[in-house]
């Protein structure tokens, strides 16, 4: 009874409380800044990211004393502008991979855990086979076969990233299936589809959200690695990974070329991981109980 009277704030207020946790606050802030930067890149970036000007090649960072704040690359392209545009690719890939693989993984995982038996066996065999591939090698193979494009890159990453969702969703669905409320729904005449949609999947959302943040970070790293190897998105699109790759030849003379893209990747992945960590802590029943009461 005391619990009931304690709940006076609305559910929106409850959501706001989340941001009082430092990890979640910092993580969300970093991602929000990047999102705004990527979304409004044409307005924010001082230069066209692909505009070459060989007269101004290899300028060191001018900081606030000149137009090329973070310097230029060997072709005279503005580093800061390329970084801002690069955020677009990283975020598109991160978000698309996290959502698509989440959808596939949670669907297959919940079906696998709920039905068990033959369905489960088949899905789990697929999971084991996919899990056995070295992830980067697999992506390279897919891109080598299908050619370089943003869509192929996302598909290649989704093909591996759904697996952690699937495994966790399956394990949870297995335990949810035995809960009395699922049995009660069956006694009410609910079909398997209805039970999955109304009773299993909604209870998988919180953990999937946490896995999603880690999947997003991993996808951004994978994209950078593949771009570094020259197998990412087409060269006409600036990305942090391909900037690092280009910087390799000039690493001893122009420190700013590798440092800034590297820093951007680091901060982005850190921000997403902080958010994921914070959400996980928040959703851990033991910790959240200690925190709320």
């Amino acid at each position: 009874m005391s619990k009931m009277t304690g709940v006076t704030y609305s559910s929106f207020g409850k959501q706001l409380q989340l941001f009082k946790q430092p990890k979640i606050f910092v993580g969300t802030l970093i991602i929000a800044v990047l999102l705004v930067g990527g979304l409004f890149a044409p307005l924010i970036a001082p230069f066209d990211p692909n505009k070459q000007n060989l007269d101004l090649a290899m300028l060191a960072p001018q900081w606030l004393s000149g137009p090329h704040v973070l310097g230029t690359d060997p072709l005279g392209r503005d580093v800061l502008s390329r970084l801002i545009y690069g955020a677009r690719v990283s975020l598109i890939i991160g978000i698309a991979v996290a959502l698509l693989s989440g959808f596939i993984g949670v669907t297959l995982g919940s079906v696998s855990g709920y039905f068990s038996g033959r369905t489960d066996l088949i899905i789990q065999k697929i999971v084991e086979v996919m899990w056995a591939f070295p992830p980067l090698l697999f992506a390279i193979a897919v891109i080598a076969f299908l050619g370089q494009s943003l869509v192929v890159l996302i598909a290649a990453l989704v093909l591996q990233r759904w697996i952690p969702y699937c495994r966790v969703a399956r394990a949870q669905a297995l335990s949810l299936r035995a809960r009395d409320f699922v049995e009660a729904a069956r006694a009410l005449g609910a079909t398997d589809g209805r039970i999955l949609v109304h009773h299993i999947v909604p209870n998988l959302i919180p953990t999937s959200l946490v896995i999603g943040t880690f999947a997003m970070a991993a996808a951004i790293i994978s994209e950078a690695s593949l771009s570094f190897l020259g197998l990412g998105v087409p060269r006409s699109i600036p990305t942090w990974g391909s900037m690092l790759s280009d910087a390799r030849a000039h690493i001893s003379t122009s420190w700013w070329l590798p440092v800034f893209p590297g820093l951007f990747i680091l901060v982005t992945v850190l921000g997403i991981n902080l958010l994921g960590d914070g959400l996980r802590d928040h959703l851990d029943p033991k910790l959240s109980r200690a925190g709320n009461h």
Partner: peptide, 11 residues
């Protein structure tokens, strides 16, 4: 059922 805590979907 017996267990009122398991009998209701928390979501």
């Amino acid at each position: 059922f017996q267990d009122p805590y398991s009998s209701l979907n928390p979501r």
